[in-house]
Simulated scan of single mutants.
Amino acid sequence: MNMLPASLARRGVAAVAFLGVCVLASLSAAGAASAQDKPRIVMLGGPLWDPFFGAMKKGGDDAARDLNVDYQWITGTDPNNFVADYAKLVKQAASQKPAAMVIGNYFPDTLDPIIKEITASGIPVIIQHDGGASWRDIGAISYVGFSARDLGRSVGEREIKAGAKFGLCVNHVPGNTTLDLDCLGYNDAFKAAGGDSKVLTIQFSDASNPTFVSSAIRGALQSDQRIDAIWTIGAVQGVASVEAVKQSGRKIVNASLGLSLGSLEALKNGDLLFIADLQPYLDGYYALLAAYQYVQYKMLPMGQISTGPLMITKDNVDEVLKVNVTYPGVRGAS
């Protein structure tokens, strides 16, 4: 299996090993807990129309069941007003004074001040998946996720190895600093190799419309003949990119992020070179586990808990498809 550089991989393995040991202790303790001992933990995540966040929620659901936690998943539902709605939901959840909060910090410009107030009030907060650049600054006790810029750089290097010289990074959540860093890292790789890249921005309200996304990518390909590689940062957008490339008639090195049945089939058929899997199930499971352990025992893994990426290629895609049949939803494929 293909991972990020060894230094990052070692940190991820260490964190996972630590958490794996702690799961056994936590499960034993949780089994003995009475109903009134349940800590209340809320998890705020992304919209469930994206299979990525479905897997993240399932991770949280499974951890809550295993640990006997009073747990609630909260997210917005309106793509046209997601930032404002999500910020309001974070405030409302904090007003209920839960034992701990797990928050996806998707829009730091809006959410950083809110989260800083929450942590200052004494509620422990773990930042999950998005917001890895600022979690310490806003008083969070930990971050579960990945290094966005390193991820983008790794993706770019793989595409360059496949012959690409000019990449297109498709950002479908403008204002989300994680995706901004993804694209910066992607550009880092192309610049270092003597090439270049550009960003195609798609509004979040349009991001779940495959026809719109495909048309936008096809337009980018038509308007810039230099583009010979694409990276979409979501499964829906990845499937849409396959159609765009086919319609363009050009040879494009195409990669994506996040798993769906459509993207996995595209990978198996050779329409995608690889998919970067951030393993959102682990984001949900480990974030809730870490929050629980902190609330109950005041124990906490030191530093960032790395959960990805794992690179899915034609060599291991069949294994992932099999897992998805056996354990639906765990890999985010739907």
Rank of each mutant, 00 (worst) to 15 (best):
M1S: 12
L4W: 02
P5K: 11
R10I: 04
R11E: 14
G12W: 00
F18P: 03
V21Y: 01
C22V: 05
G31N: 00
A32Q: 08
A33T: 02
I41W: 01
I41D: 00
G54A: 09
K57Y: 13
K58P: 05
Y86K: 07
K88W: 13
L89T: 06
K91A: 15
Q92G: 15
A93P: 15
S95V: 09
G104Y: 02
N105W: 01
F107M: 08
D109Q: 15
L111V: 03
L111K: 00
I115N: 06
E117A: 11
I118A: 05
I123N: 05
V125W: 01
D130T: 06
R136E: 12
D137W: 00
F146T: 14
D150M: 11
S154R: 04
G156D: 12
E157C: 06
K161M: 13
V170A: 03
N171I: 10
N171L: 06
G175D: 05
N176W: 00
T178M: 04
D180P: 07
A189M: 14
G195Y: 02
V199Y: 10
L200S: 03
Q203I: 10
S208M: 05
S208K: 06
T211V: 12
F212S: 02
V213T: 04
S215P: 01
I217S: 01
L221Y: 06
I227H: 02
I227C: 06
D228H: 07
I230V: 08
T232S: 07
V236S: 09
V242W: 05
Q247P: 04
G249N: 08
G249C: 09
I252L: 12
A255Y: 05
L261M: 08
E265R: 11
D277P: 00
P280G: 07
G284P: 07
G284R: 10
Y292L: 08
Y294R: 04
Q296F: 00
N316Q: 14
V317P: 02
V320Q: 09
P328N: 14
V330C: 07
A333F: 04
A333V: 13
